[in-house]
Nucleic acid binder design. Structure first.
Length: 775
DNA sequence: CAGTGAGCGAGCTTCCGCTTGACTT
């Protein structure tokens, strides 16, 4: 029998702590919350002061039973859940469910997992903070009321199985509004002028100095006029100013900043970052990965200092204490940092190594000296014009933290060229010009969100918590409100004028713009749901809603308000919105009239149906008239932006291009892009080569034959016993195909030696397995 | 990798935050 039972939230933490405590301490984990509101009947009694009905979920029953058993025999139970609102609630639920005696139960907290911190905690137990628990209950119940009252309205008025919530609905709103901002922003053209000057050096060689004109020109004529002036001008250096500048390191990682940097530097989706970090945490490489704190423990600071001293020297050390400035931070943990600074690299998968290295560098850099820079600005006067040319050079005087780590930024600044060392220059020095280029540029549209930049925005608004950023991003994609995709750019024409040897040469050029990679786009259903919510539930999807209820939760935690009163104040007006929406709203289908079809004279409109967005020509209601015709929208198209012309084009496909071997050849566009269908076989059209609207029969046949040859080449084996069983060569090796189903072969099997019996066994074994869940 | 887009109605869907595996590909 153990004298002492310590309960923490995470099993990895339990393992570490057990090492610090003596033999008579048993450390167990609750695996987070042990119970939650019942999903049946709301889990909240609206007729009885919002009395919550908590139940222990199926997957927690074993944990609870286990803890109960040990707690019964322990002399003292120490509840060491986190020191924040959720942690305090976990402590309270534990007391309730395990029926712990307050006399033999102690509540302790620590922010860092070191022997001293834990010893100190044991020596300073405190009482359960019921006000803080109540703040959590209010948070929990409010979220339940919002989610479980609005979602059913959506099922009725938009589509079944949809969802709304305090966090997810705002996340979707951000993406929808950004998309509309992008559609509504006009890009304004202007001309930017860059000059290349020749600077002779003592050695006789010369170097090129690049400088940008202080003015940008709105019109081509103005830019041209400026170039004409320059063709007859003298260029003289008017001013050289040298100023010291400093760069400081970024603070240590929190969950949100780790997700951002892993996305920017390595292209990780936020969920990947979290699962890799989880493995690093479980193997003891890093501290806890779900945190909003930038704080480092004294142990960590000592370790970082020692490592920096040893590797870089005294001048590079600068111990810093960072303060969090994110809204609603609860700081129950340390920042994310390596547990051992002398472990510069680790073994593991390449993802683990990369993420660890990122954490190691960022943490170490945070305790290093500023980088010192000398920035030089040179002004070059033009004898024939009032404008000037400006050149900037940067010299790194002392690298400081830069030797280890530099934070990346979301907005890639295309105009910011590598600034380097300037050639030696003097005031009043005359410069010869090599060439001057006036290029048409365009103002930029706002950028689309990536998963990580959306997390950043949510954190700024104080919406969501470290443990929910990644799941929220997944949810809004699963609900089909948002898609993460790549989009091809479009061509744009621009003008450039080059002044060289007294002549101006004008050229029209093209560039590709708007190429997107792994960006978040709203879907039509996302747009419709968002508009419905902003129309009927504006207070809930308001960007400040979370911040304002958080203030009230704080009041509850301070003991200034009773939680039921706060919920009452929220719920009464909220529930009126629900009733109003149910009674007074139309079914939302996102309908948008596009115009009149010139061939039939009927109205064309876009709307959402049971199977997604589609175009309809003609009306359903007209009696005796012909039935309307329908066509689904393609990937990347949206009800909101599709034109009449694009919509009518959708009806051109699928089209028959002729017969081949007495069977129809049909061209269409499916889930995976344009295809040729023949004899119920499909062949994809070649991207960038074949156009589904114009492809001729001859080319389609070519593709069919090509595919046929490929298939016959991939056929490894058949059996006379059952011709439906075929062994094929696939992308990842040989596999068995049988009745439209594929069966995996174990690695290392030689397909040549496969027999009919072994194939049959593989198939039967697979078919016997329980059927996979529908997603 | 179709073509669908009506209506009836049983029974289901749904929230946020705290934690890990157990699943399949």
């Amino acid at each position: 029998m153990e004298e002492n039972l310590v309960i923490v939230e995470s099993p990895a933490k339990a393992k570490t702590i057990e090492k610090f405590l003596g033999n008579n301490y048993l450390v167990k984990s609750s695996f987070g919350h042990i119970r939650d509101l019942d999903k049946k009947d709301f889990g909240v009694d609206l007729n009885n002061r919002y009395e919550p009905n908590y139940i222990v979920s199926e997957d927690k029953k074993k944990v609870v039973a286990d803890l109960k058993k040990i707690a019964k025999t322990a002399k003292t139970v120490w509840i060491a859940s986190d020191e924040d609102r959720e942690g305090e609630a976990i402590a309270w639920h534990l007391m309730e469910v395990l029926k712990l005696d307050p006399k033999t139960t102690k509540r302790i907290v620590f922010h860092e997992i070191t022997k001293d911190a834990i010893q100190h905690a044991i020596e300073h137990p405190r009482r359960l903070n019921k006000a803080l628990v109540d703040a959590q209950q209010a948070r929990r119940i409010l979220d339940r009321l919002v989610g479980f009252e609005i979602s059913p309205v959506l099922w009725k008025k938009v589509k079944p199985s949809l969802s709304a919530g305090r966090v997810q609905s705002v996340a979707v709103r951000l993406i929808v509004e950004r998309e509309r901002e992008i559609t509504n922003t006009d890009t304004v053209p202007f001309f930017r002028v860059n000059a290349l000057f020749i600077v002779p050096e003592k050695s006789g060689k010369s170097t090129i100095l690049k400088a940008e004109c202080s003015e940008r020109f709105a019109k081509e004529e103005d830019a041209n006029l400026f170039l004409q002036k320059c063709s007859k001008a003298e260029f003289v250096i008017g001013d050289i100013v040298t100023k010291p500048a400093k760069k400081s390191p970024a603070p240590p990682f929190t969950t949100s900043t780790l997700q951002q940097e892993a996305s920017r530097k390595m292209g990780f989706p936020v969920s990947l970052t979290m699962s890799v970090a989880q493995r690093l945490y479980e193997s003891g490489r890093i501290t806890y990965m779900r945190t909003d704190s930038v704080n480092l423990s004294q142990t960590a600071l000592n370790g970082a200092k020692k490592k920096i001293l040893e590797t870089y020297g005294d001048r590079y050390v600068k111990i810093r204490h960072y303060k969090t400035n994110s809204k609603g931070a609860q700081e129950a943990h340390e920042a994310i940092r390596p547990t051992d600074f002398f472990q510069e690299e680790i073994e593991g998968t390449s993802q683990e190594q990369k993420l660890y290295s990122l954490i190691w560098k960022r943490t170490l850099a945070s305790q290093m000296a500023d980088a010192e820079i000398e920035r030089t600005n040179v002004t070059i006067n033009i004898s024939t014009a009032a404008e000037r040319f400006l050149a900037t050079g940067e010299v790194l005087k002392f690298d400081g933290f830069l030797g280890v780590y530099l934070e990346s930024s979301d907005e890639e600044n295309l105009t910011d060229e590598e600034k380097g060392l300037l050639p030696p220059l003097k005031v009043h020095q005359r410069l010869d010009v090599e060439s001057i280029l006036a290029q048409q540029r365009f103002t930029q549209k706002p950028p689309r969100y990536t998963e990580a930049s959306l997390v950043k925005k949510l954190e700024e608004l104080g919406i969501g918590r470290p443990s929910t950023y990644a799941p929220t991003i997944t949810t809004i994609q699963q609900r089909d409100y948002v898609v993460k995709e790549d989009r091809q750019g479009t061509e744009r024409q621009y003008v450039q004028m080059l002044l060289k040897s007294g002549n101006i040469k004008r050229e029209e050029k093209t560039e590709i713009i708007g190429t997107e990679k792994a960006k978040l786009f709203p879907t039509d259903i996302g747009l419709v749901v968002n508009d419905f919510l902003t129309k009927h539930f504006e207070p809930i999807v308001d960007f400040n809603f979370t911040a304002s209820v958080e203030k009230q939760f704080d009041e509850i935690a301070e003991g200034n308000i009773v939680w039921q009163e706060m919920i009452d104040e929220f719920y009464l007006p909220f529930h009126r919105l629900i009733e109003d929406a149910l009674a007074n709203s139309e079914r939302a289908r996102g309908e948008r009239p596009l115009g009149i079809d010139p061939t039939s004279g009927k109205a064309v409109s876009a709307k959402i149906g049971r199977f997604g967005p589609f175009i309809q020509i003609g009306e359903t209601s007209e009696e005796g008239s012909e039935k309307p015709v329908f066509a689904s929208l393609q990937q990347g198209q949206s009800i909101e932006t599709i034109t009449l012309e694009q919509a009518l084009r959708l009806f051109d496909l699928p089209r028959e291009v002729g017969d081949f071997e007495e069977k129809k050849v049909i061209i269409g566009i499916g889930k995976f892009g344009p295809y040729v269908k023949h004899d119920s076989n499909f062949v994809s059209l070649k991207k960038g080569v074949d156009d589904p609207y114009t492809i001729p029969l001859s080319r389609a046949i070519e593709l069919i034959l090509e595919k046929r040859e490929k298939v016959s080449n991939s056929l490894l084996k058949t059996f006379p016993e059952d011709p439906e069983i075929r062994v094929l060569q696939g992308r990842w090796g040989p596999y068995i195909a049988y009745k439209k189903q594929n069966f995996k072969l174990n690695k290392g099997i030689n397909p040549e030696q496969l027999t009919y019996l072994t194939c049959k066994e593989v198939i039967d074994a697979e078919l016997k397995k329980p059927k996979q869940k529908k997603t």
